[in-house]
Each structure stands twice: as C-alpha cells, then as structure tokens.
Amino acid sequence: MTAQAESQNVDKHNGNADVRSIENTRGGRYYRPRVDIVERDQELLVLADMPGVGPDGVDVQFDDGVLTIQGRAEPRQPADTEYVSREYGVGDFYRSFQVSDQIDVQKISAEMAHGVLTLHLPKLEAAKPRKIAVAAR
C-alpha cells in the first residue's frame, strides 16, 4: 500500500491549504477526510471520518489500483449564519489513494455508520502471505 497519488485537497481540521481537488464535480472546495488504513493478512481495512455524510451520500470507486472516496455533506446552517465562533468548515469530502496490493475488486464492501466509512478491501489470493513449510534434514 502506497499513497503517492494521494489527492491534494484541504485537510478538514487544518484548512489553510486552499488547493482545489482533482475532480471538481460540484464546485467549491473539498475536505480531506481523516483516515486509518490497516493492513491485515486477508485485507486492507480503511476507516474514513466523514461527519455529516449519510449512507446515501457516499461514493467509493476502485479503478486501476486507485481507491477514491467521496462523501456529500450538505450545509447544515444557512450561508448567512453569523457565527460567534467558527472553528471548522462544512463541505464535501474527497480523497484518493494508490493501492499497490492486488485487491479482489468484486469483494470490496463498504458501510457507513456514525459518520465513519468502513471499507474492506480483500486481497487476491496471490497477495496473501503464505506460510512456507521448512523441511528438516
């Protein structure tokens, strides 16, 4: 698993880089979801924080070794709201990763709960670790 092709967009809670995302389908700016990526023997597990995104607002694609996650977060307050304090912005999420492992694309599964996307990317047989028996002489 590598991430050279990781998209350059705005980190949700460190939003000073004003870089537009690669795919600008709705206009405006995207936030970069925070992720945990865990490698297990049988799969890669990806958890992505996308608060405000419901199960219907998630789009996950895996194409040619690139995993792309998108989430749609609708505005929760009117645009003209005057904040007493405003520490974060609200908007859609976008992030992509280059995945070097061989993934069984047909068996990728995803679920969305409490604003967290959980993705299971099962490895193809060839990519799974094998125990090599060593014969004693």
């Binding site: 924080d49 929760r76 409490h114």
Partner: peptide, 20 residues
C-alpha cells in the same frame, strides 16, 4: 472543534465527532 451561533431562542453549538 466547535461552531457556535445564536438564534433568537437558543444558542447552538455544533461539533464533528465521527464514530461517537
């Protein structure tokens, strides 16, 4: 992080706590 705003009847405080 918090966003805080005032409405006529109430003070509103919002936080993003995914997974909570």
């Amino acid at each position: 992080s918090l966003n805080i705003w005032e409405e006529a009847e109430a003070l509103k405080i919002e936080a993003e706590l995914p997974g909570l």
